[in-house]
């Protein structure tokens, strides 16, 4: 048992424990904190597997940006006081059983999968120079299309989140015009 295995088990226990905390804690703010812990554990796995670029992107984008967005929304709605009604015991039990059955089915199907050993020596395929070369040669079209996706998501979020004042104004205008007529 070398240092790779020890780090793997520690990070795995941390990730699974934090993931259980996400779904079991009653307070949404605590759920966000546990999810950030899970993301840090997964970033640790990435570093262990020599994917340094993805580890940093995971911390910056997920733990940094997306989770702060979640926290903003939760605190904006003042949900940190625990007012959320829980589902009934029966529905919760059904959810756990369905998830557990899915776990068992996939477990039975991957039990006989071929076991590949992991080369623990350091490679450089996860470094930013190597990934950048592949990204800008073979995957340059998906990269450009994802920029269009970001633009449309940004416009969509602004349109959805906008308050509907224009409609009411137009209705007032209509009534004014009817009065005028």
């Amino acid at each position: 048992m070398d240092i790779y295995d020890i780090l793997f088990w520690i990070l795995s226990a941390f990730a699974v424990g934090c993931a259980l905390g996400v779904i079991l804690s009653r307070n949404p703010v605590n759920s966000v904190m546990f999810l950030i812990g899970t993301f840090f554990a997964i970033s640790g796995h990435y570093i262990l597997m020599n994917a340094q670029f993805l580890a940093i992107v995971n911390i910056i984008v997920y733990a940094g940006a997306i989770m702060v967005l979640f926290l903003f929304v939760i605190m904006l709605m003042n949900l940190n006081a625990d007012v959320e009604p829980q589902k009934g015991q029966l529905v919760q039990l059904a959810g756990v059983i369905s998830g557990g059955v899915l776990f068992l089915v996939i477990l039975a199907s991957i039990k006989t999968a071929k076991t590949e050993s992991i080369d623990k020596t350091s490679t450089d395929i996860g470094l930013i120079a190597d990934l950048g070369k592949v990204l800008f040669t073979r995957y340059v079209l998906p990269f450009e299309i994802s920029s269009v996706l970001f633009l449309s998501a940004m416009i969509g979020a602004v349109v959805i989140g906008k308050k509907e004042e224009t409609k009411s104004v137009s209705k007032e205008d209509e009534s004014e015009m009817k009065q005028f007529l």
Partner: peptide, 18 residues
């Protein structure tokens, strides 16, 4: 697989959309 199943269970158990 374990992390994915925990996510499935959470999505089925909770009522809070966030």
């Amino acid at each position: 697989l374990l992390l994915f199943s925990i996510g499935i269970m959470g999505a089925l158990m909770r009522r809070n959309a966030i």
